[in-house]
């Protein structure tokens, strides 16, 4: 498994992603600069967080029109794994690979804290190992997921809602939905299930040094043998 970590001007979670993939997921990972076109030899794409193009115009708007993202679109249409985290999620929505959009948090503030997530759909590669309640950090100002009511209905019907914000017990409530997202949606899948966008940062929860490793239950899609290793189970329990 070789993962392309896309670097855009203003990406700032690219190094976290590369470290997590190489060190904790034990997969090959290389940076790919935004003005490149070629994804030959890669099996998966990670679009990391940050403030690409300074968030000018709209978060992810200009990044979605950069040369590499057209290749990412084709890559995704071939059914290969694509993950967008935080700004990466915003970019995949702007690109039209994922439905909806992410706008200013309902409380207007930038939120940097741990959240609890629950996987809704357990059939996609990204959510297959996401058992129970996951503790993952967020850090965003514009993470409120919105879409028109018909789109939300379609997402529900097609099982495209990957994760929702819940409380520690795994229950939905207003307090747990930290940014005011519609349906407390934290992550969505494309219809085929190979593309995932999510606001929380699984790459910041893969190493024992952080105190929790629930990110492995999502990123484990990139290294299934590691995700299913029983030796990981004690570390994952908290």
């Amino acid at each position: 498994m070789k993962v392309a970590v896309i670097q855009l001007p203003g990406s700032n979670c690219d190094q976290d992603a590369l470290f997590s993939l190489r060190n904790d997921l034990k997969v090959d990972a290389e940076y790919v600069w935004h003005d490149q076109h070629d994804l030959t030899g890669f099996d998966a794409v990670f679009v990391p967080g940050g403030f690409s193009y300074g968030d000018y115009l709209r978060c992810g708007a200009m990044a979605a029109r950069s040369p590499i993202m057209e290749s990412v679109r084709q890559f995704a249409e071939e059914g290969k794994l694509v993950l967008g985290v935080c700004n990466g999620f915003q970019i995949l929505c702007e690109l039209g690979l994922l439905p909806g959009a992410l706008i200013l948090n309902a409380g207007q503030k930038f939120i940097c804290q741990d959240v609890y997530l629950k996987a809704e759909n357990r059939t996609s590669p990204w959510t297959r190992s996401a058992e129970g309640v996951l503790r993952i950090p967020i850090a965003h100002g514009e993470g409120r997921f919105v879409a028109d009511p018909e789109t939300i209905q379609q997402l529900e019907a097609n099982q495209q809602i990957a994760f929702r914000y819940v409380n520690q017990q795994g229950l939905l409530n207003q307090e747990a939905n930290v940014n005011g997202s519609m349906g407390a949606i934290a992550g969505v899948l494309n219809q085929a299930g190979n593309v995932l966008g999510l606001m929380p940062h699984p790459e910041r929860a893969t190493n024992p040094i952080f105190g929790y490793q629930d990110g492995l239950k999502i990123l484990g899609a990139l290294n299934p043998c590691l995700a299913s290793k029983e030796s990981l189970e004690p570390a994952l329990a908290h």
Binding site: A61, M62, R65, C93, G100, A101
Partner: peptide
Amino acid sequence: QILANPVI
């Protein structure tokens, strides 16, 4: 195409 996002 770019200046506005028709979704929002």
